[in-house]
Design a protein around this nucleic acid. Sequence first.
DNA 1: AACGATGTCAACCGCAGTGTG
DNA 2: TCACACTGCGGTTGACATCGT
Length: 351
Amino acid sequence: MGRAPCCDKTNVKKGPWSSEEDAKLKEYIEKYGTGGNWIALPQKIGLKRCGKSCRLRWLNYLRPNIKHGGFSEEEDNIICSLYISIGSRWSIIAAQLPGRTDNDIKNYWNTRLKKKLLGRRKQSQANRLSGSTQDQKDSSGIETLSNSAIERLQLHMQLHSLENPNFSQYDHNPPPMWPCKLNPIQEKMMQTLQLVNESSNPLMMQNFSPATPQKVEYYAQSSNPLQQEFSSMSSMMINGMETSMGINIPESSSLVLESDATIQQPSMELQQCWAFQAEIDELLSNKGATPLEGQMSEFDCFKDMHGAKNSITWWANEFEANSASSNSWDSTGIHDHKQIDMKYQELAQGH
DNA sequence: AACGATGTCAACCGCAGTGTG
DNA sequence: TCACACTGCGGTTGACATCGT
């Protein structure tokens, strides 16, 4: 037996909203608010709509101060930085962009931003991969991972290979890239990860050294989304670097933090992952090495990003500024660091 | 001008989380 | 503690617009 439907589907109108419906909904909510009950709202107004549909219409279209289209470069930058850092948490990203809805940002990312970054790259990647065997491709396991994680990895790797087109020459001895800076979300994730380790399973804390691929596997099977995410990214980084970038990582290696590991003493592989992020920040801030000619145009949209400011401090400052002054309407958005912190604490606690 | 391909975006769907009795 | 109602979120769909041939 399934869950009861939220409304009588047979007696509910679907599809585009008429201006009359919009006017009714807007007028009522401006007068009386939602009354804390979206489900009952359409009956009160006399709309043949599902309560969820009313909510969506209000949040994404009718509420005051909504901006549509015309994303600025700064907004692009924020979206990209946050997407790379936290993935498709559109509501969190939207909370940092006053007047933007999660739906808008999601659409914008899926239809434009992502293509700008990944679109033409696919062809060149395909060309490169054509040199390797199908078995190698299949064994990467990439197709089993979430699209979001794949895209984020591709962004990492793409930007990395732009800066180091002959990366494979490093082979077993990649150049030292530590220390690098972490953005606040990454720092939070690493701190939280330690909390996860400490709180989720006592067995995991007993013998954390050496870190093993089994732990990555353990995380993959975990119900904790943060652990799953970390597992995905770990596997992706290892497989991705091996298969696409021509470097080999010993089987015994893992990206899992060891119990006594600190932010100051991560593994080489972990350092590389963080270094990727640092490189992205450098590229976004236009301080990195000049990409190859002909590839530049792919990133024209980002070359002047206001990440020109030191992106890390920018990121932190911007976060604070937006938190303090955000006029974004939302009863659901996350407005400040504390709430971000809480969000990650929730993740860490496996809620 | 016609038609298919592609892009855009509003809206829907289903699931997970939360509140409440 | 449990069941149910409701909310919020992210992924997906489909209608419409635009572009290319």
